[in-house]
Design a protein around this nucleic acid. Structure first.
Length: 281
DNA sequence: ATCGGGATTGCCT
DNA sequence: GGCAATCCCGATG
C-alpha cells in the first residue's frame, strides 16, 4: 500500500514538519505535563497534491487522516477523521453549489482543492468542509476521533452546554460536524483558508507505526445525513465512515448490512478484530 | 425589506 | 425519538 510509504511525492520538504518549534510546548494541559506519543513520531502534512483528487475519492482518502489545530496559546488539538460526506456541486441538488451556483457564502467550494469551506448552520453552529477537485465540490468533515488536547476540547464543548451538565465522554467530543468545529476551535474566519499552508490548521497522515487506523476498518458508504428533501440525491451513498468506529455520528445499519466492496475492505474483518464490535449492534 | 429553509445539537419525554 | 433553539443566507418583490 502506498499509504505506508515514509514519504510521499506530493509532500514538499518544507511542509512535512509544520511548527516543529511549537511541538515541545504544545501540550500544556493544566498540571501534569504529559507529552502524548504523537509527538514522538514524524508527522507528514498533507499538501495540495493530496487534496487535488475527485470529491468522492477525497472523501474516502480523508478517513484516517488527522486534523490538527494549533491555537494561538500554543495548544495543539488533534482528531482523526472517521466520517465524511461528499458534496459534488453541479447535479448534486444537496450541495450548496448545486447547478454551479456560486455565492458569497460558498465561494470556498470553488477555490483550490484543500481550501477550507466553513459555513454557519441553524444560526448557531458551524460546519467545516474541504474543497476537492471538481467545480464547486467539497467534502464535509462529520466526525473525528479525539487524539490530543481532550481537556481543552471538553472545555470548548462545555461552553455551549448547560452549566452542570454531565461530562462528555471522549467519543462525544467530535462526533458531529458542528461538534468537531467547537472542539477544535474551528472558526468562521477559517473559511477560504488553505489547509496545505495555513499555520493554524492542517491535515496530517498518522504516525507510521504498524497498520494505519483506517486500514483496520472497512469503509461504509451510506446516504448523507439531513438532506431528505433533495430527491434522488438524498439517497445516493455519499457519506463514508470507518465501520465499527465508536466516534461515528450516526450509524447506518442498513448500509452496513451490504457487503463492503473489495477496494474498501482490509485484510481483516473489522468487526471481529478491532475490539469495538459492540458498536455494531 | 421580508421570508423560508437549513450538510445540527441538546434536552426532554 | 421528538422538537425547540436560533439566525444566516439567498431568493423574491
Amino acid at each position: 500500500m502506498s499509504g505506508r510509504k515514509r514519504k510521499q511525492s506530493w509532500e514538499s520538504e518544507d511542509q512535512t514538519k509544520p511548527h516543529d518549534k511549537d511541538r515541545s510546548d504544545g501540550v500544556h494541559v493544566k498540571s501534569g505535563m504529559v507529552k502524548s506519543h504523537y509527538f514522538l513520531d514524524y508527522h507528514q502534512r498533507l499538501g495540495e497534491q493530496f487534496f487535488n483528487q475527485p470529491c468522492i475519492s477525497l472523501a474516502k482518502a480523508l478517513l484516517g487522516k488527522v486534523l490538527v489545530r494549533l491555537r494561538a496559546d500554543g495548544v495543539e488539538l488533534r482528531g482523526r477523521v472517521v466520517e465524511t460526506e461528499a458534496y459534488l456541486g453541479g447535479e448534486d441538488r444537496a450541495s450548496h453549489s448545486a447547478g454551479g451556483k456560486r455565492t458569497e457564502r460558498n465561494t470556498a467550494m470553488f477555490m483550490t482543492p484543500g481550501t477550507i469551506y466553513v459555513y454557519p448552520i441553524y444560526g448557531i453552529y458551524l460546519c467545516m468542509n474541504v474543497s476537492s477537485q471538481g467545480e464547486g465540490a467539497a467534502v464535509l468533515l462529520r466526525a473525528l476521533e479525539p487524539l490530543q488536547g481532550l481537556p481543552l476540547m471538553r472545555e470548548l464543548r462545555a461552553a455551549r452546554r448547560k452549566e452542570g451538565a454531565r461530562t462528555l465522554k471522549d467519543k462525544e467530543l467530535c462526533n458531529g460536524p458542528s461538534k468537531l468545529c467547537q472542539a477544535l476551535d474551528i472558526q468562521r474566519c477559517f473559511d477560504r483558508r488553505d489547509l496545505s499552508s495555513d499555520p493554524e490548521v492542517w491535515l496530517e497522515t498518522e504516525p507510521q507505526r504498524g497498520p494505519q487506523e483506517a486500514d483496520l476498518h472497512a469503509v461504509v458508504s451510506a446516504p448523507r445525513v439531513g438532506i431528505d428533501s433533495h430527491g434522488e440525491w438524498a439517497t445516493k451513498p455519499l457519506r463514508f465512515y470507518l465501520r465499527g468506529h465508536h466516534c461515528v455520528s450516526v450509524l447506518d445499519k442498513q448500509a452496513e448490512r451490504l457487503a463492503p466492496s473489495p477496494e474498501n475492505t482490509s485484510f481483516f474483518d473489522s468487526s471481529s478484530v478491532d475490539g469495538r464490535s459492540t458498536e455494531l449492534n
